[in-house]
Amino acid sequence: MSALFNFQSLLLVLLLVICTSTYAHATFPKIMDRNREGVFGIFWKCARVGERLSPYVSICCVIMAMSLMASS
């Protein structure tokens, strides 16, 4: 089943994109800041969400991990 049709998988993919973009922005800030518009601007925006809402993102990651462990 595709992640587009399963809501839990869609949330998991979204959290992974936010966390990965935040890490990439911390590692390579010039590359991420250069691509603010266009398709790669999505990753810049996800990095901003990860930086500014990091406590909420981390809580969501913990909750998602616990729900995945419970469903296994």
Rank of each mutant, 00 (worst) to 15 (best):
G38C: 11
T27Y: 15
S54R: 13
F7I: 15
N35F: 10
L16P: 00
N6G: 02
T27A: 14
Q8I: 08
F28G: 04
S21L: 07
A65G: 02
S72D: 07
M1G: 06
C60A: 15
L10I: 05
L16F: 00
S58T: 14
I59V: 11
R34W: 09
F7W: 13
F7E: 15
R48N: 02
G41D: 09
P29I: 05
V57F: 06
F7R: 15
A70F: 05
V62G: 13
I63L: 15
S2V: 03
M66Y: 13
S58I: 15
E37H: 06
E37Q: 07
C19S: 00
A24L: 12
I59H: 12
I63E: 08
S67G: 04
I42C: 01
A70E: 11
R52D: 04
R52I: 08
A24C: 09
A47C: 05
D33A: 14
R48E: 07
S67C: 09
Y23T: 04
M66T: 13
P55W: 05
E51K: 03
I42F: 03
L10K: 12
L53K: 11
A70G: 03
A24D: 08
L10R: 13
N35S: 12
K45F: 00
M32G: 04
K45T: 01
L14C: 00
C61S: 09
P55H: 05
A47I: 03
I42Q: 01
M1L: 08
N6W: 10
G38T: 10
I42A: 02
S9N: 07
R34M: 08
C46R: 01
R52E: 06
N35P: 05
I18V: 01
S54G: 05
R48Y: 02
E37K: 06
S2F: 03
V57N: 06
M69K: 07
A65T: 00
F5R: 14
